[in-house]
Design a binder for these strands. Structure first.
Length: 549
RNA sequence: GGGCCCGUGGCUCAGCAUGGAUAGAGCGACGGCCUUCUAAGCCGUAGAUCGCGGGUUCAAAUCCCGCCGGGUCCGCCA
């Protein structure tokens, strides 16, 4: 709705309707700073210019209530009709509100952690960003698939195979058992360097398709993935597909990409196959002298495959992959293929330094979830409700707290993990939003108990807090659009927080159930519209919108 | 050594793309609010040379240059 208001403002401004000069503002619903820009060339003060523009323009939009010139700003205010349309459209479209009619097949690749152990709190940042982006793209109307690219050909997996052979698998959650084998094997190699050669041979055998070795690798990778999937599920994340790196060796895509590069004449065959990237002053080896491929070769093949199947493909990657990703993109461009759009996120580190699966120095996502759940339990024990419901709420609150804690931070910000903060429910904004939603549900539930309520929003009944709340509700589609354009899901978290906050301001000052007739219907409509936006917004963040808590 | 990212109240962050109206939240601190729709809530107070130094501009947290501090990358590893 806000999007149309904005369009109307641009139209109304005519030749001055440059979107770049529009600002959301506390002084109005939308402000233009165009007068400031014109001041110099027109040799007049911004105030004079703004006055003149406001004088000149004709408003031909039901959504613009008034236009004012203040200190050089041109301030636009939404009309009652805009507010009414907003509430009515939300109530009418319900779960479809926020749909942008965006089209196209989109692939979002996220998490893609090496299957050599459990996900740690750095991986989960990746997962949460990826999953949230996928939900928001999907909401906008795109056909979204999510993929986990399984690095099954890595040295780590070969080492883990060695570990499982030498040390066996402990009886614990599968991904944790795998990590133990991996860490143990690394220690073995340190004391027995001759094992290196064995690892080399495993890798060669796997790429070559040696049946015995292939089945060993498969078992290790699948075991790890069982545990990883469980972890992801506990924070409401589910991938549509798991794509194994080795598939591209076996299905011919690796050969195709090598051939394509060869035909472009960019390969120098010097025993190994080498591509020179002048921009990077670097030589990239894409095929070893012994005929085996490298990680980047398979990744190129994967992206050739993405090019054939999808219109847009987005990767969520740790910032340590920046240089690598730009080299991959450059190679794809040389081949006339589209490079991926990438969301980079900075590291999650521990107070004592960075994490490492190999050294066993990490906090697993499972541990985080478990401890946050225990903390949430402490609050819920005091409530009177069935045990089953308490369990469900605890899980939803814990998963929500974790997801929100990660998603609210801009991806480019490095994070230092702090247990005391992660477990502090006073500062858990997710449960604050869930709680606001539960409050809205509670009011509506009681209204229904009093008999089927009528909802009837009237613009002229709006108080300042109601007007502000409805304006914010009108921006859901606008924020969905922004996330899609900017690939920054944290702005959506910020938005949802503002919805909850505006609702709480309204809640404090405006009794709903005790209000009479017209006012009651008006406020019930606001509550219901807010409920819808909070519910859908929470779902976009992968947080369960609880009706009671 | 070079590239990229971060540096905003005591703490965690938003704002920076597209410069503009008194720099916004939350936590923590202090003082209040449960006979009123869920107190996982609400209200109020204190607290900021926006890392430092220059520059551009009528106007800089935002753009440019230099520096400082932290992170990260620079394999015929993945």
């Amino acid at each position: 709705m806000f999007l149309r208001f904005k369009e109307d403002v641009i139209k109304t401004l005519g030749e001055y309707g440059d979107e770049r000069f529009l600002r959301e503002s506390e002084h109005s619903d939308l402000a233009s700073t165009v007068a400031f820009k014109l001041a110099k060339e027109m040799k007049k003060s911004p105030k004079e210019i703004a006055d003149e523009i406001v004088e000149k323009i004709e408003v031909d939009s039901d959504y613009i209530g008034s236009v004012e010139s203040t200190n050089g700003y041109i301030n636009f205010f939404a009309s009652y009709e805009f507010l009414e349309d907003t509430v009515n459209v939300i109530l009418d479209e319900d779960e479809n509100y926020g749909h942008l009619n965006a089209k196209g097949d989109v692939l979002i690749e996220h998490t893609s952690a090496n299957p050599d152990g459990p996900l740690h709190i750095g991986h989960i940042r990746n997962s949460i960003i990826g999953d949230t982006i996928a939900r928001i793209f999907s909401k906008a109307g795109m056909n979204v698939k999510t993929q986990y690219y399984v690095n099954d050909m890595g040295r780590q997996i070969a080492i883990t195979v060695l570990g499982v052979e030498k040390l066996g698998l402990k009886d614990k959650k599968p991904d944790h058992a795998i990590a133990e084998a991996y860490i143990g094997a690394n220690k073995l190699i340190e004391t027995q360097p001759e094992l290196e050669e064995y690892v080399e041979n495993l890798m060669l055998g796997y790429e070559g398709g040696d049946e015995d070795i292939v089945s060993k690798f498969k078992k290790v990778v699948e075991t790890a993935l069982i545990g990883i999937r469980q972890t992801l599920e506990s924070v409401n994340i589910k991938h549509d597909e798991f794509i194994w790196e080795s598939e591209f060796v076996r299905n011919g895509y690796v050969d195709r990409i090598l051939k394509a590069m060869d035909e472009r004449g960019v390969i120098r065959k010097d025993g190994a196959w080498i591509v020179e990237l002048e921009d990077f002053e670097k030589e990239i080896v894409v095929r070893r002298e012994n005929g085996t491929t490298l990680y980047i070769t398979r990744d190129l093949a994967y992206h050739l495959w993405k090019n054939e199947k999808y219109e847009r493909f987005v990767n969520v990657l740790g910032a340590d992959h920046k240089l690598y990703a730009s080299q991959l993109s450059k190679l794809l461009e040389i081949l006339n293929l589209k490079p991926p759009e990438v969301i980079f996120f900075e590291f999650v580190s521990l107070p004592e330094g960075s994490m490492s699966t190999r050294r066993g120095k990490f906090i697993s996502a499972d541990e985080l979830i478990e401890r946050v759940r225990k903390e949430a339990e402490k609050i819920i024990v005091e409530r009177e409700m069935p045990e089953e419901e308490k369990r469900k709420i605890t899980q939803a609150v814990a998963a929500g707290a974790i997801r929100f804690d990660f998603i609210k931070i801009a991806p480019e910000k490095p994070m230092t993990f702090d247990w005391s903060k992660a477990l502090d429910f006073e500062r858990q904004t997710a449960s604050y939003i869930q709680y606001s939603h539960a409050r809205a549900c509670s009011i509506l539930r009681k209204a229904v108990e009093d008999g089927m309520p009528d909802l009837d929003f009237k613009g002229e009944l709006c108080t300042a807090e109601e007007r502000k709340l409805v304006m914010i509700l009108s921006k859901l589609p606008y924020f969905i659009q922004r996330v899609i354009k900017e690939l920054r899901p944290n702005v959506f978290a910020e938005y949802l927080l503002s919805v909850a906050s505006a609702f709480n301001d309204f809640y404090r000052l405006h009794p709903v159930l005790r209000a009479e007739s017209e006012l009651r219907m008006h406020r019930l409509a606001i509550v219901d519209a807010t409920r819808i936006v909070l519910r859908d917004g929470l779902e976009l963040l992968g947080i369960d919108p609880l009706e009671r808590m």
